[in-house]
Structure formats: structure tokens, C-alpha cells
């Protein structure tokens, strides 16, 4: 058998798994950049989360195939991709967890609330994708997501306000 002309690292890049991983990195980077841009444009944590959530929903609406790839197809992939996916989701958890110092009571809340908020939204998204639903529907869920995200940190009144936020003008 002839010696393979490629050195190992290049071979890895050319393998199906390496290619899959590269595409995942690129697509996720695009998604994350849009979410972070939305998040950073806000003036307070609550507004930042809202703008980040609308940015995420906008990306999902505009990139249905990519959304299916990064959120659904990667679930079926192997260990390394799973780990990379989890590591990136943790960054989103960090954004929600930044609300922890805003809590008014001294109870020792852990990071679990933020994990549940992000995990709940992603879980719902995956369910919708598995049912073949359009990613455009995600935008209409943002007020309810905000209700879930704000409630544990800022309480009922602030959370209820999120349910009536105008989708066309999320900064208000």
C-alpha cells in the first residue's frame, strides 16, 4: 500500500469528522457573534438578555439549515463535538448567570438556575426542530423565554413586563 501523502493533522482536517467539526465551529461562531452583539448593546442585564435573545431568534429565523445543524444534528455526533457544543452552551449560561448578583435575597443560588433557563430554551428549540417546525416561530417565544429568565433573578413584576415587550421594539 502506498504511503499516504498527507501528514496526520491535515488528514484529520480532511476526514468527515474533522470537516464536521470545522463547519460546526464556523457556524457557531457566527451565531455567537450575533448573540453577543445583541447582548452587549443593552444597558442593563435584563435588557442585554432580551436583546441577546432577539438576536438569537433572528439568527435562527434567518439560518434555518445552520440552526438545524448546530442544535440538532450535532446531538447525534460523537464525543468531541458533543463536548465542544456543551462548552459553547456554557458561554450562554454565563450571560444568564450574570443576573445572579442582582437577586434581592441572600439565598445561595447556584449556577443551576442559569443552566435551567438556557437548557429549557435549547430543549424547546430541539423539540421544535425534531417536529420539523420552522425556526421562524422561535421569535414569538422570546417574551416567554424572557419571563423564564427574569423571574428567578428579578421577580414576578419584572418578569410579567417581559411578556408584553413589543417584538418590533425590544429595546423598550
Amino acid at each position: 500500500m502506498a504511503e499516504h501523502p498527507f501528514p496526520d493533522p491535515a488528514l484529520d482536517r480532511l476526514s468527515a469528522a474533522g470537516c464536521f467539526l470545522d463547519i460546526f465551529f464556523a457556524v457557531w461562531a457566527d451565531f455567537e457573534a450575533q448573540v453577543l452583539e445583541g447582548f452587549e448593546s443593552g444597558e442593563c442585564w435584563r435588557q442585554r438578555v432580551r436583546l441577546g435573545a432577539f438576536a438569537a431568534a433572528g439568527w435562527l429565523r434567518d439560518h434555518p439549515s445552520e440552526a438545524r445543524f448546530v442544535f440538532l444534528e450535532t446531538l447525534r455526533a460523537g464525543g468531541r463535538l458533543q463536548a465542544e457544543r456543551e462548552r459553547r452552551l456554557e458561554k450562554l449560561v454565563d450571560l444568564i448567570d450574570r443576573g445572579r448578583p442582582l437577586m434581592t435575597d441572600p439565598r445561595p443560588h447556584g449556577r443551576e438556575i442559569a443552566v435551567a433557563v438556557v437548557g429549557g430554551a435549547i430543549g424547546l428549540l430541539v423539540q421544535e426542530l425534531q417536529k420539523g417546525e420552522s425556526t421562524a416561530r422561535v421569535e414569538s417565544f422570546v417574551p416567554e423565554f424572557m419571563y423564564m429568565a427574569v423571574l428567578p433573578y428579578l421577580g414576578e413584576e419584572a418578569a410579567r413586563e417581559e411578556l408584553s415587550i413589543c417584538i418590533d421594539n425590544p429595546r423598550d
Binding site: V117, G120, A121, L124, E144, Y147
Partner: peptide
């Protein structure tokens, strides 16, 4: 809403899953 109820449950499952993983 049923969406929030499903998201609450998915969120709880995510916390449990993370700890098991």
C-alpha cells in the same frame, strides 16, 4: 403557557443531565 411549562421541564432535565454527565 404550555411552551413555558415544556421549557421548565426541559430546563430541569438539563440541570439533572449536566450533573449526571
Amino acid at each position: 403557557s404550555s411552551d413555558v411549562e415544556r421549557a421548565l421541564l426541559a430546563g430541569m432535565a438539563a440541570v439533572v443531565s449536566q450533573r449526571v454527565e
